[in-house]
Amino acid sequence: MVNLLIILTTIFSGSFIQVNVNNTTKDSIEGRFYMNPPSISYIHVDYPVNQILLNNKDTLIIYYPESNEAFKIVTENPVSEVDASGNFLPILNDEMFNKMGLILVKKDYEEGYFIKYYSPIKKAPIKYLKLSFKKNLIYTMEIIDQKDNILRKSYFDCYNLVEDKNIPFYLKTITYTKEDSSVKIVKYIDIVKIDNVPDSIKNFEIPENAEIKVVEW
């Protein structure tokens, strides 16, 4: 969820329901979010825990108001999630992919879908990012490794116009590993464009008396 809207260029807010399913468990998460990409993303999870996640440039703060506990995760690689990992909104263009280190290498038609293949410029475990389009909107996105295995496949649906952008309000991602697979479904509700992120979020700080664990990545 965090990186799903990070590449948008306008400020959005909304709520979401995320369902995670794997071989042994099924859980759901509900919450609200504000995105002011690329610098700030704020997520307030209401269920199953009361949790605030604030991603501001190179620092991710995770705060639990009820227990007054916090994690301050500092990374040297703040945009590392905006790569070919498969979790972003499909309002991308070639320029955006280039910024992510991917170039268009092949175009094709398969069963009525227009297909685009992107490859990393530098040598990487990923061979292709394969996108299929239906009516000019991204329908699926696959991450394919050097052995032609699909590592992750995402389905995008329920497109809605928010301002002038087509945004899928439904995203299903299947991640394949050697042993099993896991499914993540995200449904967005009431995504709206806003003028500014509220000051309470922009200026959010961990309370002084909170128990803080600093993690450096």
């Binding site: 969820m1 965090v2 990186n3 799903l4 995320q18 859980d27 998460i29 919450g31 997520i43 999870v45 269920y47 199953p48 825990v49 949790q51 996640l53 991603n55 991710l60 995770i62 639990y64 227990s67 506990e69 994690f71 995760i73 990374t75 690689n77 590392s80 999630e81 990992s85 979790n87 664990k213 993690v215 450096e216 990545w217």
Partner: peptide, 25 residues
């Protein structure tokens, strides 16, 4: 150190986050 994605920590308890980050590293 390897860096896991933050999206994996959404909706998780503080105990989970503590154990996950340590174990991942």
């Amino acid at each position: 150190e390897p860096t896991p994605g933050a999206s994996r920590l959404i909706g998780k308890s503080s105990q989970y986050v503590a154990v996950y980050t340590d174990e991942y590293k």
